[in-house]
Design a binder for these strands. Sequence first.
DNA 1: CTGAAAGCGCTAACAA
DNA 2: TTGTTAGCGCTTTCAG
Lengths: 341, 341
Amino acid sequence: MGRRAASTRIGIADVAAKAGVSLATVSRVMNGNFTVDPAIAERVRAAAAELKYQPNPIGRNLALGKTDTIGIVVPDLANPSFQGILRGLSRAAARDGYRVLIADSSEISSEESILAGEARRRCDGVVLCAPRMGADELAELAPSLHPLVLVNRTIPTGDGAVIPSTVVDYGRGIRELAAHLMELGHRRLAFLSGPERSASNALRLDALNEYCAEHDDVQIAVIAGGSSFEAGHDAVDRVREADVTAVLAFNDLAAMGLLSGLHEAGVRVPEDISVTGFDDIPFARYTTPPLTTAAVPINDVGEQAWHRMRDLLNGTAPTAPVAKFEPSVAVRGSTGLAPVS
Amino acid sequence: MGRRAASTRIGIADVAAKAGVSLATVSRVMNGNFTVDPAIAERVRAAAAELKYQPNPIGRNLALGKTDTIGIVVPDLANPSFQGILRGLSRAAARDGYRVLIADSSEISSEESILAGEARRRCDGVVLCAPRMGADELAELAPSLHPLVLVNRTIPTGDGAVIPSTVVDYGRGIRELAAHLMELGHRRLAFLSGPERSASNALRLDALNEYCAEHDDVQIAVIAGGSSFEAGHDAVDRVREADVTAVLAFNDLAAMGLLSGLHEAGVRVPEDISVTGFDDIPFARYTTPPLTTAAVPINDVGEQAWHRMRDLLNGTAPTAPVAKFEPSVAVRGSTGLAPVS
DNA sequence: CTGAAAGCGCTAACAA
DNA sequence: TTGTTAGCGCTTTCAG
């Protein structure tokens, strides 16, 4: 048998006894089933109130086969973008009576599939946020995770089945940033790249190569970077050696690190070199100089991820399985006219 | 009866059938109980692997009366301090095989007790992070939430029972900040206060009053503020009217907002006025000028909250029921010598 | 409209 | 060692 409940917690049986009705009736009343005689319902409610009865969701979960909880796995809770997504997701889900269980993979891609599986078993669905795992692994894992929503990642759909997702048009954003720099007279640019496994990094890179091909007077060097402040900071030397007049950083964090390193090295921004970020995190406007970046409505991304999940849970076909967000360039002080060489 | 499971998910019964043993044996094998014949155990494992069997945690939860999950309720997921606490808590709990369910009260204090109760019913324990609710309400709620850990809040213990908690010595931190300013020659200070309901705000205020009483050449004006960037930004006029040479902001966010507003108004920092923050959030060192602040090891706060919770869950008496953190002043560019008047 | 009873998937006491 | 069986707390079918 299960643990002999020495616990004194009151259950549906206590309420039933006190109200002099059956368990089924109490259950019906607690769930707002109106096929119960008003007088009896009132009696049940009174008993419940008196005993301060609170239904145990775990028993309910088992009986119903659902938990009203979704899981989200993120690479790093310290990353402002993921924080924003989590917040948007959590608030939107809460409005519909759902809770969020979090799993932080600490950027260890091999942990992702395990965490995702565990989360899925405990929850009604899983949101995989910018998973770092390879495409093959993701494709193989996906079916077992259903209902699944992807953020900033899509699966190369062999067949017609599409996994609902929210994506940001990183390619378009970085192109617009490049165009902005070009207008300012920059021709020799550098892309301070992000994490190698990051799908959104590949998107940026492809778009930049395309842009390059279309404008043969523009050159774009690729410099190894990362997604963190430190990565940007540590790239200063490589950036200076690259002999460029502008740097497109992978994201705001890296751009801020670069800004800081450049400042320490006595390089002026934007007089000597222009710098752009990506995301428009809350602090981007308060750097020195304020960061020109491609703004992403990150809370909305999280909210839309929930909406995709809700559709999956309800079995209603999503209006559009993938929600695409177009970043908008926010021109601030970190970009300026190219220096005359 | 429950839902007639049309679902094709494989359960412990399938494995038992395939391995030709009883449910109990499968359960024992899956839980690493070594009282099972190795040969049989191997047979069970093979069957489980072949069927890709994954134990359903929900059934387990019900049988065991535990979920291996703890809940945390935070006032606002957009606040860097709460993000840090959540991250520290989540990572530490994960190391011990626990997951975290989040609840964001959106700074609505009346929601807190509901969210906390719900979280508690679904989880094995609850962490209440800087609850905004009143002391009476908290004291009344606490028993029903056990196991409960408080962050940045304590309960006026009528009797000897102490609720485990992690607290930051805000009083000491703000005193040291005030002392730092005094050393720089400042005598007319202002405290840009935080949310009214915030207990940590009261701690700062009390300490400042005490400090004032001890140093009769120092005056500290209190200006209504808040905990957000906007609150700090909007307080610029009040700060300028206060005729002070230094401002102690409630936290880094408010300080950054103030810095920004001051800059827009043409007031120089620290030449005209010095500004301090509190927390040392990741961005504090990158403001212009870099922010002098009282550094709080926020991830550690979350980690220690988990350790308190773990002790509660294990029934082992916590080493110390309350973990106290002493902030350390990080002197940076936003504070300087008081202007000669 | 109400109650009895059969599960939901798993664990553990008890018996064999 | 292994199997039988009685729950964990709730929902829901089905009969009354």
